[in-house]
Design a protein around this nucleic acid. Structure first.
Lengths: 92, 92, 92, 92
DNA sequence: ACGTTTGCGCTTTAGC
DNA sequence: GCTAAAGCGCAAACGT
C-alpha cells in the first residue's frame, strides 16, 4: 500500500492515485453517514426506554418533514378511496 | 450432475442426496414466491395505468390487513403526540 | 362480504368495484405468498426432524444464491466498463 | 423555537417538552445525514469534472464494499459450521 | 425534462 | 422479547 514518490510516477499512476483519493473520500463520507444512522437508532432506543411508541414518533417526524397540508391531503384521498369501498376509517 | 444408482452409494452419498433434495425444494419455493411478488407489481402497474394512486391503495391494503380498530388507535396516539407538540393535524 | 348487483350501481360504485377487484387480486396474491413462506418453514421443520442443522442449511442456500448471482453481476460490471470505453459487447 | 420556562408547565407539557427534544435530536441527525449525502454528490460532480465516469466509479466502490463484507461473511459461515460441530472457535 | 432503472434505507418478519 | 435478515418502498441517478 506504500506509494512511490509521485514525482517519479508515470501519468497513469498519477491518475490512479487521484481516483483512489476520490474513492476514499466517498467511502469516508459513507462511513460517517452510517455512523449518524446508528446514532438515530440509539435515540429511538432511548425513547423506547422512556415509554414512547417509536413507530408513532417516526410517523410524526415524517409528517413534520412534509410540507404543510400534504398529510391532510393524503388522508383526504385515503378517505375517498375508503368510502368508495364502504370502509369506515372513523377518524376520531 | 447425473447420480449413480443409490443402491450402490455409501451412506454419506445418500445423506448428501437427501440434503440436496431438501435444498432444491426450498429453492423452488423461493422462486415461486418471487414470481408472485412480481405478479403483485404487475397488478400495481395496471392500477397505475387505470389512474389509481398506487401509494394510497397500498396504504388502504395495509389498513385492511390490520385487525379492526388498530388503525384508528394509531391515529389516536398520533393525535395525542401531535397535540402535545402543538401540531394541528386537522383530520378533515 | 355480499355485493350488490353492479348493474344497478352508479358510476362511482363501478369505480369502487374496480378498485375492490384490484385490491382483492393483490390480497389474494399476498395470501399465496404467505402460504409458500409457510411451506418453506415446513420443509425446514422436516429437515430438523431428519437431524439437519437448519442454520447451516440456510447458510448453504444463501451461498448458492450468491454464487448464482455473481456471474450476472460480473457481466454487469463488464458491460459498465465496456460502455464507458465506447465498446459494443455484441460478442457476449 | 423559543420555549416557555419548563418549571411553570404542567406535567403533560413537561412530557411534551421531552418528546419535542427527542424529535429535534432525530431531526438534527437526519439533517447531518443529508448534508453528508450532499457532500458525496459534490465529490461525484468533482470527479465528473475531472473526466471520470461516475457510473464506473460507483461500481468500483460497490465492489470494494462487497469485497470488504465478504471476509466477515466467510467468518460467519465458518462460525456457523463450527458451532454446528460443537467446536469453539477461540482460535480466531 | 421525463421515464426507466438501480441502489439505499426502512419496515416487517422470522428465528432464537 | 430481542436480534438478525429479508422484502419492500422510495429516491436519486442515468439515459432518452
Amino acid at each position: 500500500m506504500a506509494e512511490a514518490d509521485p514525482a517519479i510516477m508515470d501519468k497513469g499512476s498519477i491518475a490512479a492515485q487521484e481516483l483512489r483519493l476520490f474513492i476514499e473520500r466517498v467511502e469516508r463520507l459513507e462511513e460517517e453517514k452510517k455512523g449518524i444512522a446508528d446514532d438515530v437508532k440509539e435515540v429511538f432506543s432511548e425513547m423506547k426506554g422512556r415509554g414512547y411508541d417509536a413507530k408513532v414518533v417516526r410517523k410524526l417526524i415524517a409528517i413534520r418533514k412534509r410540507k404543510a397540508g400534504e398529510f391532510e391531503e393524503e388522508l383526504a384521498i385515503l378517505e375517498t378511496y375508503a368510502s368508495a369501498l364502504g370502509m369506515q376509517l372513523s377518524l376520531i
